[in-house]
Write a protein that binds this DNA or RNA. Structure first.
Lengths: 325, 325
DNA sequence: TTGAAAGCGCTAACAG
DNA sequence: CTGTTAGCGCTTTCAA
């Protein structure tokens, strides 16, 4: 329309300096008048990169992951990158599909927190071969050679358990994720070592492997309550589960924390507002996500970096639900 | 590597029938051996479509939107389409940016729930001109010519308010979103009409326009409690806000629901587990999202369809927090 | 049943 | 400062 070649137009739109101001103005004016939108597909195809970070999480409805994504987005925004989010819905198959989809979309790097079903890492090794940077967070593989961001699961589980022991609890139930997940195992070790350290008897029946599914809470709560030796403390898998457990126990006439102390996980806002207020583990989701993104972006920009492992500290937050005395 | 032209390879990979089975097998074998991943960018560029639905929501950390996205994803999966999620973070500027980004990415259609800041619709009209299908949900524009999915905000606000009146409440506070949002206004009208219908005095001081920000709850709660005529009921903006309000009021020595009845919004799981259990409005987020996606996909497939408006019914769920008697 | 060639919208040498 | 040209990886006529 202006009788100008497309290279010049391209230069104007890209904001280059090697162009006559007048020409540039004319192009920009017409572009905005025509409501021109550059075709990202074509740009990305040409550039062989997409400026996009792919993310695979189990479920965005889970607030931990929602907050982690917030942290990822923030870092991505700062770096001028986009984020593409996929949910595995805790399914190994879906996770694999997501991965293919992200690779096909040619994202520049991928951040993953694996599904509960995922018990092997083969689908991720090909990424490394293809040179696509990869960072795991929270739910990671123990052995794989890749960057990862985790919290001090072992230590915090130990600290939480010791706190319960100090409150005088002797029969401490522990609800955690599936055994094959590394962070579940770390937490379990922390719990077990705390018991052993303080000479508290370990009982397998007090250990519940949940699948992070909210529809199972009632079932395992009843199981715990019906044990011949009912627990006098529960270390829950997350705050929502803790809340539901407390509700069920109260209905059974149990007092919290006098009869059963309850320790949550994640330190959601609601912890402060429920009754009794809920002790919990502050799990810095936003920071974890941000760290993962930071590492990934670094690896995208400098292909030769070594995998990095970062540990973010969780904190025990004590409230009424574990104040037995 | 096979001495076969790329057209033939393309045919094999696309699963066409006009190809020799033997050739096809060889191609597919080699492809999987090489871990070949088709370049979605190139395919989309060529096809002039991306099989992708763009979504703009205020915040995915908000459970309503997280669940709505779940509904969108489900429909998209069924239709073999992808979903690209953007967050406006309740900012008008970010919303505009998201929109440009989605258009540049050449998504086939867009689903939007507008930010609290958004008080005009100019940035959306160009979409219609470009022939990009557009569906709004929950937070919609009243006047724009586009498909939309909403709930019966007016009726449900009326029903909730009438329920409180029937409990004997006379000074009913109402917390809602910003005035320029259509659904806030609808709810407010429902509330006002319910009061008038039952000859309950309308007091402006009982109406709070919040911005869906959790950090303002304490402030407006104190404001309401310090009114010369303290409210005896509160219709809250969502369940989390309701929970926090209840917490603050309990600390002030008020009994719920005897002194102040509280009605939440969204019917989160936690409503059943808190004390007193929380009455709420069941707001079918998943269905709303699914409907929006269904309409959008229809419009993508049949460009000539007229805009469709769909209303999904919310339901009043009565629990202890409003059972005054 | 297969191949050659054009083109999707853009960028980036290179030449002028 | 601007235009020409080639090419990113794919699909799709058209011809053989």
């Amino acid at each position: 329309m202006l009788g100008i070649s497309k290279s010049t137009v391209s230069r104007a739109l890209a904001g280059r300096s090697d162009i006559h101001p007048e020409t540039k103005r004319k192009i920009l004016d017409l572009a905005s008048q025509l409501q021109y939108e550059p075709n990202t597909l074509a740009i990305n195809l040409k550039q062989q990169k997409t400026n996009t970070i792919g993310v695979i999480v189990p479920e965005t409805i889970n607030r931990f992951f929602a907050r982690a994504i917030g942290g990822i987005q923030k870092q991505a925004d700062m770096a001028g990158m986009n984020v593409m989010i996929c949910q595995s819905n805790e399914s190994y198959i879906a996770e694999k599909k997501n991965l293919h989809s992200l690779v096909s979309s040619r994202v520049d790097g991928i951040i993953v927190s694996i599904s509960t079903e995922t018990d092997r890492s083969d689908h991720f090794v090909s990424l490394t071969e293809k040179g696509i940077p990869l960072v795991f967070f929270d739910r990671v593989f123990e052995d794989i050679v890749a960057s990862q961001v985790v919290t001090n699961n072992y230590e915090i589980a130990m600290e939480g358990t010791e706190h319960l022991i100090k409150q005088g609890c002797k029969r401490i139930a522990f609800v955690t994720g599936p055994e094959h997940l590394f962070n579940s195992r770390s937490r379990l070790s922390g719990y077990l070592d705390a018991l052993r350290k303080h000479n508290v008897q370990v009982k397998d029946s007090y250990i519940v492997h949940s699948h992070y599914r909210s529809d199972k809470v009632e079932e395992y709560t009843r199981y715990l309550l019906n044990l011949p030796q009912r627990p006098d403390a529960i270390f829950a898998i997350n705050d929502y589960a803790a809340l539901e457990m407390i509700h069920i126990m109260k209905k059974s006439g149990l007092r919290i924390p006098q009869d059963v102390a309850v320790l949550g996980f994640n330190n959601e806002n609601l912890c402060r507002f429920v009754e009794p207020s809920l002790s919990s583990i502050d799990h810095p989701a936003h920071d974890i996500g941000a760290s993962a993104a930071e590492i990934l972006i670094n690896h995208i920009r400098h292909q030769d970096l070594k995998p990095e492992k970062r540990v973010i500290k969780s904190n025990l937050i004590i409230r009424e639900s574990t104040e037995v005395k």
